[in-house]
């Protein structure tokens, strides 16, 4: 079995790819992992104990054809049975062309476009209502005047965020304008101004079977985060109401594939912040406590029966750390000149 995985940028803003690959390898050492990388310096390209072979791809902004051609090339030259995309920017393409991949003999397990749209920040208020949870007051803004109006109405502190990426807590108008400019320059419009929800940040990783059933759920609390809000240390929790919300989400929308729910919880009040239609970068945490979602998703792709239990213990901690890997410049040169590692 050969599985391609993207998001192997295991940096201080890590992609989920290494966690996915590690989960698959630990479940079945015979699985070969192919890293799909957008940068020759992605650490995953050099982590040959997790990624067997890497290929450089063109950015998703170049459209589907180059990506599809590359995957066909990988299938022909190395072999490829399935692909697990993990980055937000590439997901719309993989979702749109999942049938084409299937016909080419490359399996995926992804939501459809309609399901994918649910996680758009414009739809989160409706989703929250259906799930009987809260959504913070949010204003969509396109220019500085609208930004001023929105922050006046919502008050400080508030959150200035992009529609898909980046979110910053701001305490003053100059700060709001600074991040409005930074995010819009990088990711475009709209920019969202959102009230700050009070409580603990609790997240759930899970996967749906596409028929309303869950393939497993694990809830965690972020204990420490990076300056971008990415989890560094975390602890597993058993928040029954939050896990029920995740289960309801899978059931109501017949969610297919992996997902992450980001919530703020204050006592019994659950506020939905984001739905990510992919594995989070901390997916290995779930694997480590006994719920190997990447392997379950892979098995479901191939019609195998999988365990769907979410039995894990609360109070298990994930501790991230940094590590240095020493390699030869020739490995970089192979990637830079041939677009693929030796493997």
């Amino acid at each position: 079995m050969i599985v391609a995985i993207s998001g192997i940028n295991d940096t201080d803003n890590p992609g989920p790819g290494i966690g996915v690959a590690r989960s698959l390898k630990e479940a079945d050492a015979s699985i070969k992992t192919v890293g799909l990388s957008y940068d020759v310096q992605d650490p995953g390209n050099y982590m040959d104990f997790v990624i067997d072979k890497s290929y450089i791809l063109t950015y998703p902004s170049q459209g589907w054809e180059p990506i599809f051609d590359r995957l066909l090339y990988i299938k022909e030259s190395y072999g490829l049975d399935a692909v697990i995309p993990t980055l937000d920017a590439e997901l719309p393409l993989y979702i749109k062309y999942q049938e084409e991949l299937n016909r080419a003999g490359i399996k995926t397990f992804l939501p459809n476009l309609e399901q994918f749209e649910l996680r758009s920040k414009e739809n989160l208020d409706k989703v929250s209502e259906k799930l009987e949870i809260l959504y913070p007051k949010t204003k969509k803004v396109f220019n500085i005047d609208q930004l001023k109006e929105a922050v006046n109405e919502i008050g400080f502190p508030c959150v200035v965020k992009g529609n898909y990426y980046k979110a910053y807590k701001v305490k003053s108008l100059p700060e709001a304008v600074y991040y409005f400019t930074e995010i819009s320059n990088e990711w475009g419009f709209p920019i969202l101004v959102q009230e700050v929800a009070k409580g603990e940040e609790l997240n759930v990783v899970g996967a749906g079977d596409g028929k309303g059933g869950s393939l497993g759920l694990v809830a965690v609390k972020k204990m420490t985060t990076t300056h971008l809000g990415k989890i560094w240390n975390g602890v597993t929790i058993k928040h029954d109401k939050l896990l029920k919300v995740a289960e309801d989400f899978v059931k109501r929308y017949k969610w297919k594939g992996p997902f992450e729910l980001e919530c703020i919880v204050d006592e019994e009040n659950i506020v939905l912040i984001e739905i990510n239609p992919r594995f989070p970068a901390w997916v290995y945490f779930a694997t480590g406590v006994g719920v190997n979602l990447p392997k379950r998703v892979l098995d479901v792709m191939f019609g195998k029966n999988v365990g769907t239990t979410s039995s894990y213990k609360s109070g298990k901690m994930m501790v991230r750390y940094t590590y240095e890997l020493i390699t030869d410049i020739n490995n970089l040169s192979e990637l830079a000149t041939k677009g693929e590692s030796n493997g």
């Binding site: 603990e200 965690v220 609390k221 597993t236 929790i237 928040h239 919880v265 609360s314 109070g315």
Partner: peptide, 17 residues
């Protein structure tokens, strides 16, 4: 609350310590 002998308490619902 899970409380150990050193007085460290962990709330398994919210993850607070």
């Amino acid at each position: 609350l899970a409380i150990n002998k050193n007085g460290f308490a962990f709330d398994p619902t919210t993850g607070e310590t």
